[in-house]
Amino acid sequence: MTPEDFKAWRKTMGFTQKDAGAALGITKWAIENYERGVRRDDGRPVVIPKTVALACSAIACRLEPWRADFSPEEPVSQFEGRYQPFQSPPRKR
């Protein structure tokens, strides 16, 4: 997830930076760093962790946190063909 993708997600969700931090369980300062792509204090690059990128997707899909007693309402086979599996981009040679 790029800083531009992250900011687009936040704006699409209608979140302020403070709201996005609360939704993701991280600070407003982390949100600012992710959107800027570099740390404010020393200019080092910031990589948005995969866990944060996945949490953004989960929030956008209105998923709730996982529970041990989770039971899908539809069998897994009902989802076949509805969702495209994630494919990593081809490696550069």
Rank of each mutant, 00 (worst) to 15 (best):
R39G: 03
R93K: 07
P90S: 14
A53Q: 07
Q84W: 04
R44N: 10
K18A: 15
P89M: 08
S77V: 14
E32S: 15
A68E: 14
P90K: 15
I26W: 01
S71H: 07
G81S: 06
W29I: 14
A30F: 01
N33Q: 13
P90V: 11
A53Y: 04
G14W: 03
D5T: 07
D69I: 04
E35M: 05
Q17A: 08
K18L: 14
A30N: 15
G14Y: 05
E80D: 15
A22E: 10
D41G: 09
R91E: 14
P89S: 06
E74M: 09
A23V: 05
E64D: 07
P72G: 09
Q84Y: 04
D19A: 12
Y34W: 10
N33I: 01
T2A: 09
Q87M: 06
R10E: 02
T2N: 13
P85R: 15
R91G: 06
K18F: 05
Q84R: 12
D42Y: 13
Q84V: 13
Q78L: 00
V76P: 00
A55R: 11
Q17P: 14
A8R: 15
E35A: 05
A30M: 05
R91N: 02
R93E: 14
F79K: 11
R36H: 08
V52T: 15
F86V: 09
F86I: 04
K18W: 00
D5P: 00
S71P: 02
D19W: 10
P85N: 12
R10M: 01
T2Q: 11
E73Q: 11
G25D: 07
V76L: 07
P75N: 15
D69H: 01
L54Y: 12
A30Y: 01
R44Q: 12
A55Y: 04
S57D: 01
I26R: 02
A20P: 02
D5V: 01
T51E: 08
K50S: 14
P3I: 03
A58F: 09
R44Y: 12
R91T: 13
T16R: 01
V47E: 12
K92R: 15
P45F: 05
Y34V: 10
M1T: 07
K28L: 07
R44V: 06
